[in-house]
Every structure is written in C-alpha cells, then in structure tokens.
Amino acid sequence: MTAKNHDARDPVTAHPRPDFPDQDQPHPGWTGPMDPPPDHGETSYEGRGLLAGRAAVITGGDSGIGRAVALAYAREGADVLFTHLPEEEDEARETSRLVEEAGRKAVAVCCDIREEEQCRALVGRAVEEFGRIDILVNNAAYQMSQPDGIAAISTEQFDRVMKTNLYGMFWLSKMALPHIPKGGSIINSTSVQAYKPSPHLLDYATTKGAIVTFTQGLAQMVVQDGVRVNAVAPGPVWTPLIPATMPDTVEFGKQSPLGRPAQPAEMAPAYVFLASEQASFITAAIINATGGTPLP
C-alpha cells in the first residue's frame, strides 16, 4: 500500500536499529538534529486515491506520526489542516510543503489544545476552510519521563499531560462531531503504554489507557450518526518527542520484539486504512502497531 518498491522487506532490518547516538533536545524537539533522521514516507508513500476529496484535521501534524499521516492523507487525495506549537513553525512549514507538493491544500494552525477556546477556534477554522471535517485525528500528546517515579511528577506536569492528551481530544471530538458527515471518522492516537505502562511514564500511560476507553465508548455513542471512531496504538516510534522527553535514546526501541523503533511512515497506513471506505465495518477498534509486543 505504501512502497513504490513492492519487494517485501525483512521487518527486522527494514529501518535503523539501535544503538543510536546519544542525543538530547529541549521540548518539544525538532526533526532536523535527529540521528538517524525519521522517515515520514517522503520517498516511499504512494497514494491510491483512498481519501480523494476528503478534509482532515490532524493535531500535532508538524512532525513525527502527525507529519507522516498528513503526508499520506495528502497523497491519498485529502486536504489537511494541522496544528503545531509556536516553537514548531519551521516543522510546520515542512509538513505544509509535503502536503502541497502532493497537490492538496495545507493549513497550518498554531494551537494549544490545552485551551478550550483554542480548540473551538480550530474547529471553526477547519469549517471555514473546508466546509466540513471528514476526518479528525487526535494525535497531539505530551509526555515527560520521570525515572524517579510518582514523587517526581509535579502537579504542573500531571495537568499538562492530562490536558494535552485527554482534554484536547474530548473538546475537539465534541466540537467537531456536528461538522462530521455520515461516513466520516475520528481516529485517536493511544499507545502500547495503555496496556503495558512503563513506570517512568506513569501519567502519560494513564492518559493512553483513558483514550482506549474514550474511543470505544464514543464509537458506540455516534455509530447511528454514521461516524466511526477508532484508535491506533503505536509501540516505540522514532519522533522528536523521544530525544526531547526520554533520558536515554541509545537503546530506544530495542525492547520491541522487532528490536527497533518504528519510523513514523510505518504508522501512517493504519490511519489511512481507518479513515478510508476499506474500514467501513470497523469502529470501536484499536489497531496495535507495536512491533510485535502482544496486547489484549
């Protein structure tokens, strides 16, 4: 579905494997300094028109999984509005370039989804630009590793994690639903952390478990409106969030059965599938893209 070279590749060696150079960045992290550089599908993703004429909203679309999804959606024929933080303007410009290079409309919006009114304005902007929202991807997230455990998690950090990962998703889903037509979908980013929490990511893992519950509950609530709600649960993925929030990047991803982290490009096909007509009978589902870690 995604590769121009259709020869099968060994998934163990298809992308870089740790050990990686030790690297550290301030939050939110940037793509450019990362070694190895993340692969968003720039040279590999080949669209098939699966989302032709659709309008998508993606939070955290400036880099990482969000950028890979924006690129894939554009190459599948969708226009894309995506959010970024003020520090991520350069990253956002690159995502816009990739979307526009695919011949689709790109709208980059600086937005802090921890703020209810900014979420409301974001939905209004999407409706102004597109007239509707066919696909909402709640992807933006915040984490900060705390190896010293719960005692090191401040109330400020806890609030930031909860508001970014849960409040933003709640507000945007609630506000977008009146503008999502029958056949539209909401796709949430959860995580392997929802099922196998790492102690140093306690607050983050808590939100990812809640996203699973929210996804399955909302899916049942809106199914009669013709809207599908699903989620993707990635394992370790090589994105700017890693050098910006994790204490050790050298062995990142080595714990997965495949022995490496995913590249963002490997996550995008799941988001394309769930948004497409090929997934018309799928709602309340979680696609586990964990590199072989078994999940419930």
Results as ranks from 00 to 15, higher is better:
Asn230Ile: 00
Ala56Trp: 05
Ala68His: 05
Lys4Phe: 12
Arg97Gly: 11
Ala152Asn: 00
Arg228Phe: 13
Ile211Trp: 00
Ala285Ser: 12
Ala74Val: 10
Ala55Met: 04
Met144Phe: 11
Gly183Ala: 07
Glu277Ile: 05
Glu91Gly: 06
Ala126Glu: 11
Glu46Ile: 11
Ile65Thr: 10
Pro199Asn: 08
His179Met: 09
Asn288Met: 05
Pro197Gly: 03
Val57Phe: 08
Ala8Asp: 14
Val123Leu: 13
Val123Ser: 07
Ala205Asp: 10
Asp90Val: 11
Arg48Gln: 14
Gln193Leu: 14
Ala8Gln: 14
Thr213Arg: 02
Glu89Ser: 15
Gly77Ser: 02
Ala205Ser: 15
Asn139Gln: 08
Gln118Val: 08
Met267Tyr: 00
Asp35Tyr: 03
Asp203Tyr: 01
Ile287Val: 15
Gln224Leu: 07
Val127Glu: 04
Thr59Leu: 12
Arg97Pro: 01
Gln255Gly: 03
Ile180Met: 15
Thr95His: 02
Ile287Asp: 01
Pro33Lys: 03
Ser96Glu: 11
Trp30Ser: 04
Ala244Met: 04
Pro18Asp: 11
Pro28His: 02
Gly292Glu: 08
Ala262Asn: 09
Ile286Gly: 00
His40Thr: 11
Gly184Arg: 05
Thr249Val: 07
Ile58His: 05
Glu128His: 15
Thr155Val: 15
Gly183Asp: 04
Met267Ala: 02
Asp112Leu: 13
Tyr195Lys: 05
Arg54Trp: 06
Ser256Pro: 00
Gly183Glu: 09
Val232Trp: 06
Pro33Asn: 00
Leu258Thr: 08
Val80Asn: 04
Ile150Lys: 00
Gly124Met: 11
Val212Lys: 01
Phe20Ala: 04
Met221Lys: 12
Val109Glu: 13
Arg114His: 05
Leu98Ser: 01
Glu76Tyr: 00
Ile153Ser: 01
